[in-house]
Amino acid sequence: MCCLPAQAAVHVLVVSGLGGEAEYAKRFADQASHIAQASQSVAGDAQHVRLLSAEAATAAAVEQSLTSLAGTLRSGDQLIVVLIGHGSYDGSDYRYNLPGPDLTGARLVKLLDAFAPAVQQLVVVATSASGALAKPLQRAQRVVITATKSGAERNATRYASQWERALTTDAADRDKDGTVTAQEAHDFAERQVADAFKADAALATEHAQLVGDGASRIVVALLGAKALYAADAQLQVLRGEQQQVEARLDAARSRKDTMSEDAWYGALEPLLVEIAKLDQRIDAREAQLSTAGGAR
């Protein structure tokens, strides 16, 4: 249940920083590549997804990409930035480790602040010490996710690999609507990281945080058929009808606290049945298109 206007554009920048060791370098590059690939489902146009990896991922390249995007994106558009790798914090500023000069936190803030205020931003900094950026990056129309709670959590993080999993499988799609929102992806990644530390009986060295409103309205991946056949007119009509029922469902949810349990489920059932029947028609149409190799 996302809410971008039909004409809004989504642009994604994924950066894989220095690994230090070969194992980390490969891991970061792979994660960035998979996230970029998954992001195409929401960006629609492959040109809207930029991947900076290995030697190409310099501070200058990041600056150039963001500056260029700042000139391109209009109000209502959406920017998703994902930074993977190692970060550090010296007590006054964050540094993102890149080939050549590092990108400082202060510079990153400046680059992101250059976008039009009404551009919805999601900034995921999945590096060590990234918690230092949470406050400086905080701004209206921007959701910030950091892998750590402060600059003092300096160990290599596990968050990026779980963010990658959230975008590339259906594990994070809690409401099973075929879309993964930033909130769902974050909830999933955060829990997986915590569980992994618990399973290892290890002290957790990272505690992710999400700052800003609207994470549940930012879609970071579309799964399965949802990513297909977006152009089919019949499906567009059905999905339009579906959005109307979902709007009624949202309205009903807002009244839940005032109702008894029986009354609530009594009110909920017809709406859910309506959605189920619409989904049946959508599935049937998608199956038809699939058999016919229809337009996407």
């Binding site: 859910l272 989904d279 599935d283």
Partner: peptide, 29 residues
Amino acid sequence: RHALQSLEIAPHFRPAQQFLLELRGEPAP
């Protein structure tokens, strides 16, 4: 009730939809 609790979280969860419709005597087309 539990089928509705499932769909309350995930309204598009196909197996839960199908289960609810079956309970209601409205099998899939």
